[in-house]
Design a binder for these strands. Sequence first.
DNA 1: TATCATTTGTTCGTATGTATC
DNA 2: CGATACATACGAACAAATGAT
Lengths: 260, 260
Amino acid sequence: MPGEIIRPNPIYMQVADQLAQAIKAGEYEAGSKLPSETELMATYKISRPTARSAVNELRTMGLVESHHGRGSFVRSQAAAKTLIPRTIDRSGQRYSVPELRETETPGVTRIHLLDVHAHLLEQPEQDAADAFSTDHLMTDPDTGTRIALRVIIPMDVASDVPALAETPDADVTDLYAMLVEAGHKLTWREVVTARTPLPDERVTLGLTDASPILITYRVTYGTDDRPLICEELRTAAAMANLVYRITPERAPAKRPRAKN
Amino acid sequence: MPGEIIRPNPIYMQVADQLAQAIKAGEYEAGSKLPSETELMATYKISRPTARSAVNELRTMGLVESHHGRGSFVRSQAAAKTLIPRTIDRSGQRYSVPELRETETPGVTRIHLLDVHAHLLEQPEQDAADAFSTDHLMTDPDTGTRIALRVIIPMDVASDVPALAETPDADVTDLYAMLVEAGHKLTWREVVTARTPLPDERVTLGLTDASPILITYRVTYGTDDRPLICEELRTAAAMANLVYRITPERAPAKRPRAKN
DNA sequence: TATCATTTGTTCGTATGTATC
DNA sequence: CGATACATACGAACAAATGAT
């Protein structure tokens, strides 16, 4: 039994803990109002900064959301979420992805590959290659959920498949078709992570708080398992979930992809 | 052009923004020390609470981590992460999942189905059914990353397949085998989300901060697309990523699974 | 329409505790 | 031991959004 912390937890943590447990236990219904900061001050005999810190904890835990001038409200635990299917449909030699409503016309820029993309596209670390980068912004018409999609096409791939260089902002489905046209046999792998959004991501995704965003990197591999293009999708985890269909593979743990 | 916000952003946000951009631009190397709160107070002519708020933003964004008495340090952006393959291997009639090192002997409890699980397992909302719940805790021996896995087996499924009720804490691979033995033809679908950990999750996953955790719900479907069991996996997104292999489907967007 | 009380958001000041070097 | 640095906590004031009067 190694050194447990004897000193009691900070007050704001204790308060946050009690409120969190009460919420999880259903003592506050979804959508109902949390006690105001003034009320918390009274019931727990604490100062306002402490009360604020406690509520702040609940906010970063995603349990409540606060509204200026109104109060803090319990988030519904199972809110209606946009389900984003991460599947690919096949019809003959054409591969299509589930459609998403495009909000703006995509913008194409020429960039140096960042570390993450360079690693996924198996580019040499130093002297990272140039690439086309296309930013799409989609919106779910039902829920208003925004989804950002960035498509990365390395220059060397664009050289081999000139159609890509002409319309790097085409639909992903069409990009796949161009690669097939160029004689590639396509396979896909996707890596999923999550993090708290950066300030500019909050703006583009229309987020009001710092709750986590889901990020997926989908890499398209061509002949000889050569990585061709990378799609990076970002969306608020509280608004949308990803859905995968898992198909059993015959090969025994093919390409486990050694650690970074 | 509707009302853009003219009022400048809060000071602490502006400071956090500038620091965040500097970090992203590589002006602070990974592992290097951020200016101390006192320095921030001087350079930006702000008070201590404001400086603290700015650093706090960077902390919840996962860009820095603070150490009592030492300072705040820039997190390495591309830390070595455990890659968790979410694939299923097939060998004859046996389906196996990639192995994870078990840390503790799993504990089995009997529970009422929670809303999320009930929804995924398509149980009636009211009078939610009972279920076996098994908690596994795994650790990546290389990185020390902890992974929590919970397996949910509804009672009605356990009744139909008595082997499940006997050893609900068996390896998932064996659970699949029991279902196949009972005559089921298995398919899988997985839903991925993310959120900030609750206090107790921080303890079980050994987290020091409030950075996001990845959560996946894998549902195993049997004959007639009947949902049988649900696996819930949780791990820190900063420590581990999920890897999927995407196999094109012939059917056109089969079962889009209407929104919640 | 205007006013007012309530509530959260931001910012300052100050003090003390505690870990690190 | 002392200097530095972050963590916690209190008090105070004003701003801004909201909803009711």
